[in-house]
Deep mutational scan, measured.
Amino acid sequence: TETYETTDETEARKIAEELKRRGLTFRIERHGTTIRIESD
């Protein structure tokens, strides 16, 4: 499991693209301005 936290929408998108490219599944949670991406 890898966890990323960012407040930057663009960075979050880049992380999501990278995880997809590596064939990982992940979920995105939003907590206020923080975007949390957690891979399975």
Score class of each variant (00 low, 15 high):
Leu24Gln: 05
His31Tyr: 12
Thr25Tyr: 11
Phe26Asp: 03
Asp40Asn: 13
Gly32Asn: 04
Glu38Lys: 12
Thr6Phe: 07
Arg21Asn: 07
Ile28Trp: 08
Lys14Leu: 12
Thr33Gln: 12
Ile35Trp: 14
Thr6Ala: 05
Asp40Gly: 12
Thr6Met: 05
Thr34His: 06
Phe26Met: 04
Thr7Leu: 07
Thr7Ser: 10
Ile35Asp: 01
Arg21Gln: 07
Ile28Thr: 05
Ile37Ser: 00
Thr25Asn: 12
His31Lys: 09
Ile37Asp: 01
Thr10Asp: 14
Arg27Gly: 03
Glu18Gln: 09
His31Ile: 14
Gly23Asn: 05
Lys20Tyr: 10
Glu38Asp: 05
Lys20Trp: 11
Arg30Lys: 09
Thr3Asn: 06
Ile15Gln: 02
Glu17Cys: 15
Glu38Met: 15
Ala12Phe: 05
Thr7Tyr: 06
Ala16Val: 15
Thr10Arg: 10
Glu11Asp: 05
Arg27Asn: 06
Thr3Arg: 12
Arg36His: 06
Glu11Leu: 11
Glu29Phe: 15
His31Gln: 09
Glu5Pro: 01
Thr10Ser: 11
Glu38Val: 15
Glu5Ser: 07
Asp8Glu: 05
Arg27Trp: 12
Glu5Tyr: 14
Thr3Ala: 08
Ser39Leu: 15
Asp8Val: 04
Leu19Thr: 00
Ile37Gly: 01
Thr25Ala: 10
Ile28Arg: 02
Thr1Asp: 06
Glu9Ala: 09
Ser39Gly: 05
Arg21Pro: 00
Thr7Asp: 12
Thr33Val: 10
Lys14Thr: 08
Arg30Ser: 05
Ala16Asp: 01
Leu24Thr: 03
Thr7His: 08
Leu24Pro: 02
Glu2Leu: 14
Thr34Lys: 08
Glu11Gln: 08
Thr34Phe: 10
Gly23Arg: 04
Arg13Leu: 13
Leu19Tyr: 04
Ile15Phe: 08
Asp8Ala: 03
Glu18Pro: 01
Thr1Lys: 14
Thr34Cys: 11
Lys20Glu: 08
Gly23Glu: 02
Glu9Gln: 06
Ile28Leu: 06
Thr34Gln: 06
Glu29Asn: 07
Arg13Gly: 07
Glu18Met: 14
Arg27Met: 06
Arg22Trp: 04
Gly32Thr: 02
Gly32Lys: 03
Arg21Tyr: 05
Leu19Asn: 01
Arg21Trp: 04
Arg27Lys: 11
